[in-house]
Design a binder for these strands. Structure first.
Lengths: 203, 203
DNA sequence: GAACCTATATACCGCTCGGTATGAAATGCT
DNA sequence: AGCATTTCATACCGAGCGGTATATAGGTTC
């Protein structure tokens, strides 16, 4: 088997890099939401024409799903890393600070693409909502497991229900995403995060 | 001056009740968001035709603003009432429980119309975002003042910044609105609220 | 070079969007 | 009765939407 080196493509070679184009599409979806992003805006940002987009990515929904994959892989990596913090409080702090950095930074659009998609998508694109909801559910389930472990390790006070506490943390995370979209000032959100962490129950 | 009793309207009388129609429009906006609500869906839900809608309410944006007024008057009354609770914790609890009842009930659409409008509105309808943001800002400012008073009264621990704590509470509120839209199960959100209140700093 | 394959560019499709012109129907005023 | 005025119902408007047909340009393989 010698199928490597030059991919040996037949026909005219593609003039754009799909990864670069997908990253550009992600920024548009992140800024406008799924329905707010028009094909015209997408193609312009990606620097390609509509037939090229459809040939390479399928259709708008398939493009969005690929963008969502990229988003979770690149921008939501902090979530997985946060779960490995040694204490429950450390997990919460990494999650909240990571959300602050990701959704309220200077180089990327503000807010969370998942939240935007969940809140904004209506009518026909319910499949996207379901897709995003499923991912979030699995992410929250992992946090619940992590907090159950923390509870067993005596890392959370006995009166605290791990699952409810995980739900509380994700609630704050999603609230931060909403506020990041219109407040624009990171300092206020940092205050909210600091407050939440300051009332975190000590073991 | 005898200008009362019969309004003495000239011309063909209107065949629908604007208040009822506006309430129906509110439900549509609440469910679909501003951009997701089409004029066809609105007119059908309101039981009137498009010319009647435009004659009575102006245009889609004006209709939305009137619906937003109705929403805040009818559905967000608990916010003002919450501020009159005797303690800061009581204020927070009334706000959170009120949000739960309003955004996660059985008779109304789930989620918060303000959050939906902020997150979903893109492009041209930025004026609506600004309008909603201004209202939320004034609401949050009132909460900050209330917490400052609580702090002065020794109702909040000294290490807690009232403004940051207010921001934290509104963050949770908005997070609840997001979760209410896709989780559907109120019990989980009650757990999040209970957790938050259970870690509330005692004076 | 010829055959073949694939990406590009342009123009176009049907559809839905928010918004409106037009004429008929229903009331109060005189 | 007849007129003025306002609402109602139907049909329509231009614009933008997601998606595509067609033809040309740019490559590899033989």
């Amino acid at each position: 088997m010698k199928c490597s080196a030059p991919p040996a493509v037949r026909g005219r070679p593609r003039e754009f890099d799909p990864d670069v184009a997908l990253a550009a599409a992600l920024r548009v979806f992140w800024t406008r939401g799924y329905e707010g992003a028009s094909m015209a805006e997408l193609t312009e940002a990606m620097g390609i024409t509509k037939p090229s987009l459809y040939a390479c990515f399928g259709n708008k929904e398939a493009l969005f799903r690929k963008a969502l994959d990229l988003y979770e892989r690149d921008k939501l990596a902090y979530v997985g890393a946060a779960l490995e913090a040694p204490t429950a409080r450390g997990v919460a702090e990494r999650l909240l600070r990571g959300a602050l950095a990701t959704h309220c930074g200077t180089s990327d659009p503000h807010g969370c693409l998942g939240v935007i998609s969940t809140v904004a998508c209506t009518n026909e694109v319910e499949s996207i909502r379901a897709h995003v909801a499923a991912r979030r559910a699995s992410s929250e389930a992992a946090l619940v497991e992590r907090f159950k472990r923390a509870s067993a390790e005596g890392d959370l006070p006995e009166g605290i229900d791990p699952a409810a506490m995980a739900s509380c943390v994700t609630t704050v995370l999603q609230g931060l995403s909403v506020k990041a979209q219109d407040c624009a000032c990171r300092s206020e959100l940092e205050g909210a995060v600091d407050s939440f962490l300051s009332i975190w129950p000590s073991r």
